[in-house]
């Protein structure tokens, strides 16, 4: 396979803040690659280096076979970039924004209409509306259309689904799958761990470091201990009692369940059930379950360094 992005030993500091620490990875042609991590993980810094907007302190990165520092002028026309903050012209209409971005890249809306059509056609009823007056979901679609209008080889999307409801998020990923089908390579970041399943491969990133890179299916295979899911109507007390248990290793609320690992690894669930029964948690449901990406992420996270 052909790497379209090669990053090696990349570091970037802002004053005392280490935004990226020795990051190395490769992304391949026509991949849909996800960076999953919370705010402050370094996702935006990395994307700004890949889009040639920021120069690394140490290490190197190449995009589409060209160096991000020396070949920045050649890289830029081949990228579509959607920044994390809405960066279109609020006081231009939907259509004017599209025309502007098309002309900056030396093309027209008509020339690449087929590519943007599935997304842009949803906006056309509002083409005379100021971009500033669109709802969140519509702004996001317009930003994607503008990033696509020059038919880039690589699309880089910084948190495109943040603050968007579950239905719109789902639809947005469906659009990305269509674009991938058109042969475009896509790199996207998200703080929503469940969206990892939409990607071919993901990198888990936290505090400037890559914690793991794998397919969504395989990323949880390295989870170290058997994981148990417990359920009881009084979740608050269940969490407290599990934390008090002498072999307690990790206790995390997870939707309707509480996820638990034990210092001893595999356990006799009857013993835990007895302990809970005696301590006021009557008849809890306990079963062994498969870890998901969020379990994995939390197990890899390093504790917060508080030297502010």
């Amino acid at each position: 396979m052909n790497p379209i992005v090669q990053i090696s030993g990349l570091s970037k500091n802002f004053g005392k803040v280490e935004a990226l620490k020795d990051v190395s990875l490769e992304i391949f042609d026509n991949e849909l690659f996800g960076f999953i991590g919370p705010d402050g993980a370094g996702k935006t810094t990395l994307f700004r280096i890949l889009t040639t907007l920021l120069v690394p302190d140490i290490g190197s990165a190449s995009v589409l076979g060209m160096d991000v520092v020396s070949d920045y002028k050649k890289i830029r026309p081949l990228l579509g970039y959607m920044p994390g903050t809405f960066s279109l012209y609020q006081d231009l209409s939907v259509e004017e924004n599209m025309m502007f971005f098309a002309s900056v890249f030396g093309t027209t809306i008509e020339e690449n209409y087929d590519l943007v059509k599935p997304i842009y056609s949803q906006l056309e009823p509002f083409k005379d509306r100021y971009a500033g007056n669109l709802s969140g979901g519509m702004k996001q679609k317009l930003a994607l259309s503008c990033a696509l209008i020059h038919k880039p080889e690589l699309l880089i999307l910084d948190e495109p689904t943040t603050g968007v409801d579950a239905v719109s998020r789902k639809e947005f990923w469906e659009m990305l799958h269509v674009l991938k089908g058109e042969g475009i390579s896509i790199i996207a970041s998200t703080p929503y761990m469940d969206e990892a399943n939409q990607c071919d491969r993901v990198a888990l990133i936290d505090k400037g470091e890559i914690l793991n890179i794998n397919t969504p299916k395989n990323i949880t295979s390295e989870f170290k201990k058997p994981l148990y899911g417990l359920k009881h109507p009084n979740k608050y007390e269940l969490i407290n009692r599990l934390r008090d248990f002498e072999y307690s290793d990790s206790v995390h609320p997870f939707g309707e369940f509480v996820h638990y690992t034990d210092e001893r690894g595999k356990i006799d669930t009857d013993e835990l059930k007895n302990y809970l029964n005696v301590n006021g948690i009557r008849e809890p449901i306990i079963k062994q379950i498969d870890p998901d990406i969020e379990d994995m992420f939390m197990s890899l996270m390093k504790p917060e360094e508080m030297d502010v």
Binding site: D39, T162, P191, K235, H252, P253, E294, F297, M298, M301
Partner: peptide, 17 residues
């Protein structure tokens, strides 16, 4: 919005409290 999964859970435990 935007916080890591551990902090997000700590926040919810505070809500329970």
């Amino acid at each position: 919005g935007g916080v890591d999964p551990v902090t997000r859970r700590q926040f919810w435990e505070r809500i329970y409290e």
